[in-house]
Simulated assay, not measured.
Amino acid sequence: MEKKKEPLFVALSNQKGGVGKSTLTILLASYFHYRKGRNVLVVDCDYPQHSIRDIREWDIKTVEKNEKLQGKLLEQFEGSERKAYTVLTSTPEDAKQTAYEFLDRSETSYDLVLTDLPGTVNAAGVFRSLVNMDYLFVPVTQNRMVMQSSMNFVLAIRELLSRNDSFPLKDIRLFWNCMDRRVSKELYRAYTEIFRHLKLKTLETVLPKAERFNRGICTDGQVFRSTLFPPSPSLLKGSHIDLLADELETILGLTD
C-alpha cells in the first residue's frame, strides 16, 4: 500500500474573539475542498461552543428541508464525487491527537488539516497547539485594541519559538480582515509600518468588510459561508476569498 502523505496543519487564530477566524476557517475549508479539489479535514477546537460543528449541523438540517438544496448537493457530488469534508471536535491540547486518530483510520490522503482554536490564549492548551501547527495565520481588524492584542499575541509566539527550535511551526502571518473602505487609510498605513518595523509578516490579500461573510445557505440556493458548499460565484466575486486561497496555496506549497 502506498504511504499516505503527511498533511499540513494550519490554524487561523487570534487571542481576540470576533475577528472572523471561524467564518474564515469554514470559507477556506469549503473553497479548498469543493473548488480546489484539496482533501481537507477540519478540527473544531473552539471549546466548549464548537461553532463550526454547530454550523455543519445547521447546514444539514437546512438541506434536509429544501429540495432545491438537496438537488444542488447531489449535483455537486455527481460532478466531483467529493463528499462533505469531516468536522471533528476536540479540546485545544488534543487537536493533533484527535486529527491523527482520524487520519490513521482513513484511507484518504489529506492535504490540509484546518484547526479552529478558541479566541483566547488563556484556554488550556492553546499555545501548545499553536506552536505544533505547521502554519499560523492571524486575522486582524482595524480596531486598535484588536491590533495591539494581535501584535502581542504574535510576538509572544515568536518569542516562544526563539527559545525552542523543536516546535513544528514554520511561519506566522497576519492578514487584514473586515477592511472598511470608509475608514481612513492612515491607520492601515501606520500599522503596516509597525508590522514592518517589528518584522511581522503579513499577507498581501486584504478581505473587505461585507455583509455576505455572515450569510450561510439561503433557500434560493445562494451560498457564502457553508460547510457543505463552496461560496456561490456571484457572492465569491469581490470577497477576495479566492485570492486568499491562492496566496495560501503558494505559501503552503500546494500549487502543484
Rank of each mutant, 00 (worst) to 15 (best):
T86E: 14
E64S: 11
S106T: 05
L130P: 02
K68H: 06
L74M: 14
T62I: 15
T86P: 00
V87H: 03
A99K: 02
Y100E: 15
E75M: 12
I60Y: 09
L136A: 07
L130V: 12
P92D: 09
P92A: 10
A123R: 12
Y110I: 00
L114M: 08
Y85I: 14
L73C: 11
Y100T: 13
E93I: 13
N122K: 08
F102E: 04
S106I: 14
R82L: 15
L69G: 07
V87W: 03
R82A: 05
F77P: 01
Y110T: 01
S80A: 14
F77A: 09
Q70H: 08
F102L: 15
N66E: 13
N122E: 13
L73F: 09
K68A: 15
L112A: 03
D111W: 03
L130Y: 07
P139H: 03
S109Q: 08
V63L: 13
F77H: 03
K68I: 11
T86R: 14
Y85M: 13
D134E: 09
S129Q: 09
K72S: 12
E64P: 07
D94S: 13
S90G: 02
N132E: 15
V87L: 06
G79P: 01
S90C: 08
E81P: 01
G79V: 04
L69D: 00
L103E: 05
G125C: 05
R82F: 09
K72C: 12
K61C: 10
V140A: 04
K68G: 10
A123M: 10
T89A: 08
V138W: 05
T98Q: 08
F77T: 03
G119H: 00
L74K: 11
D111Y: 00
Y85L: 11
Q76R: 03
S129N: 08
R105D: 14
Q70L: 15
F137M: 05
S129K: 12
S106V: 11
Y135R: 13
L88C: 08
L88G: 00
L112R: 01
P118M: 09
L88I: 12
A123W: 07
Y110V: 02
S129I: 09
L88H: 00
A95V: 05
V138L: 12
K83V: 09
L88K: 04
K96Y: 07
E78F: 13
T98P: 01
T98L: 12
Y135N: 01
L117I: 01
L74W: 03
D116P: 01
Y100H: 14
T91F: 03
D116S: 03
G71Q: 12
V121P: 00
E78N: 08
A99V: 01
D134H: 10
A99M: 02
G71K: 12
Q76Y: 02
A124S: 11
V131K: 10
Y85C: 10
V131N: 10
F137K: 07
K96T: 10
D134Q: 09
S129Y: 07
G71Y: 05
K65Q: 13
E93S: 10
S90D: 02
A123T: 11
Y135V: 01
E67I: 10
T86N: 09
A99Y: 05
R105G: 10
F102N: 05
V126I: 09
K68Y: 04
T108C: 08
T98M: 12
D59E: 12
V63H: 10
F127S: 15
Y110N: 02
T120D: 04
A99L: 05
